[in-house]
């Protein structure tokens, strides 16, 4: 479904991603693991056209998307839950969700999408008119996930959705990812919480200083010595 083929990217003089190759198949949950500054967020930004590629190709459903603008990429059926939530803090919850459905013009489809998100996160329904910036971090994360789901993407990419949340909310986020998957949405998950990420993933990649160093099924990665030493506390 999504394929990165030897993608190189960076900022200014610094090259951050070196020939990153990874693949996400239809219906899978794939985890991308790595320490801080390994290039996880840059990988996400590159997929969505926020950072230009310097080499290689990115394919979505067999078609190249690496030279497209972000809005054109979104239109193909991808959505990103960005790192740090990035909700529109001075907009209400509903307005944030309407922004998520920006590419959709059919009012009834938008309303249905918002209702779907509200069913998934009843807390958001209660806060319909509240400004996003006044909500707790956990609620903002729900909103960020909901905002990506409103557009009914076929592939959803999540950049550290559990970062900075309490254990209870982390559990809620991972439960939600499993629900999303049951709906038939493919998930690419960037996480520092490697144990939880691998527990719900089919496959995983490990990124280190801009290179993919490991690529295996989630079960095998969970028992891999390198992964255990680096991310799972030995």
């Amino acid at each position: 479904m999504l394929e990165l083929q030897a993608v190189t990217a960076g900022y200014g003089p610094a090259e951050v991603l070196h020939q990153v190759t990874l693949q996400v198949n239809q219906g899978e949950v794939v985890s991308l693991l790595g320490a801080n500054a390994a290039g996880k967020t840059t990988t996400m930004k590159t997929i969505f056209g926020l950072v230009p590629t310097r080499g290689g190709q990115i394919l979505f459903e067999g078609q190249r998307i690496d030279k497209l603008q972000p809005d054109q990429i979104i239109a193909r059926g991808l959505a990103l839950v960005p790192e740090g939530r990035r909700v529109f803090s001075r907009m209400s919850v509903r307005e944030n969700l309407e922004m998520g459905a920006y590419m959709q013009n059919d009012r009834t489809v938008i309303t249905q999408g918002i209702d779907l998100v509200y069913d998934l996160f009843p807390r958001l329904r209660e806060r319909d008119k509240q400004l996003a910036g006044t909500m707790s971090g956990g609620e903002q994360q729900m909103l960020a996930i909901g905002r990506a789901l409103v557009a009914r993407p076929r592939l959803i990419c999540m950049d550290e959705p559990s970062l900075g949340l309490s254990p209870l909310l982390v559990q809620l986020v991972f439960d939600t990812i499993q629900k999303i998957r049951k709906e038939g949405v493919t998930v690419l998950l960037v996480e520092q919480n490697a144990f939880m990420a691998l527990n719900i993933a089919d496959r995983g990649y490990v990124l280190q200083t801009g290179r993919i160093i490991l690529n295996d099924t989630a079960q095998k990665l969970l028992v891999n010595d390198t992964v255990r030493a680096a991310y799972l506390g030995g």
């Binding site: 969505f48 972000p70 979104i74 239109a75 990103l80 960005p82 990035r86 529109f88 590419m103 557009a151």
Partner: peptide, 10 residues
């Protein structure tokens, strides 16, 4: 509020 996030909404 956030040009990059807006671009990600399409």
């Amino acid at each position: 509020q956030d040009p990059e996030a807006a671009a990600l909404m399409g």
